[in-house]
């Protein structure tokens, strides 16, 4: 491959301690993602899905191998530089939404923009409103998270992930806490955003029903991608 892929994992290993035992979570994982890809990582519990997403989202460093984002080895960045990279270019959607309970919808979505000095107040407001519109939460814009349903909360999280106009969105089991109807609506929304914005999506799931809707699936088993 002569051309630089958007994301490349090259022989990535990750171990972590769990009490007395060392868990070898990833065992030499390698794959490339093109920009704008919509990819699911599937596999049973403990197969290393979360660990993989952490590495891809620059939340962690591999013990061996390299994670290259647009050709840059993220392990070589300082903690602050990685923080900046996440803020500007990577969006996160968590299984448990992780909204700030004392902030309303607008403020939760605004949160990542507050630490980006390149985005002025007007632009920030514009982007937040657009992101809220995109997830169809305008009527709830001034409500606190505990007044929202599970699906609404996850849509707030999606708006928060997209408001920074990221290149990559990493979602760890985004539909695990949602009913199936909501799950499908959410996947529709993600696909639509992926299509409209050319955002690269990588999300983990163990919901077999979803796999039919995803073009590209990585099957993770015991920390490896069996070919």
């Amino acid at each position: 491959m002569s051309e630089q892929p958007f994301l490349r994992l090259d022989q990535v290993h990750k171990r972590y301690r769990l009490g007395e035992t060392v868990v070898h979570a990833l065992r030499g994982v390698s794959f490339d993602l093109a920009q704008g890809a919509f990819t699911a990582v599937v596999g049973p519990s403990g197969s290393g899905k979360s660990t993989l997403l952490h590495l891809v989202g620059c939340l962690d460093e591999p013990d061996e191998g390299r994670v290259l984002l647009q050709g840059q080895d993220v392990a070589r960045l300082s903690d602050d530089a990685r923080s900046r990279l996440r803020n500007r270019h990577i969006g996160f959607i968590f299984q448990s939404f992780n909204l700030v309970p004392v902030l309303d919808v607008y403020e939760n979505v605004e949160l990542p923009l507050l630490i980006n000095p390149d985005v002025g107040a007007d632009e920030r407001r514009e982007r937040v409103l657009q992101a809220v519109r995109d997830v169809e939460l305008e009527p709830q814009i001034h409500q606190l998270p505990d007044k929202l349903s599970g699906g609404q909360r996850q849509r707030v999280a999606i708006a928060r992930a997209l408001v920074t106009h990221p290149l990559l969105v990493v979602a760890d089991e985004p539909t695990a806490n949602l009913d199936s109807a909501t799950t499908h609506r959410l996947i529709d929304l993600l696909l639509e955003l992926n299509d409209k914005r050319r955002v690269t999506f990588l999300f983990s799931t163990h919901d077999e029903k979803l796999m039919g809707r995803v073009a590209h699936v990585l099957h993770l088993k015991d920390g490896a991608l069996p070919s």
Binding site: L59, S83, R84, L85, R86, N87, F94
Partner: peptide, 16 residues
């Protein structure tokens, strides 16, 4: 704790 992790994930530095 988890909220601090979320903030860090969103790009807040340790100092922030």
């Amino acid at each position: 704790t988890r909220e601090l992790g979320m903030l860090r994930a969103l790009g807040f530095s340790r100092g922030q």
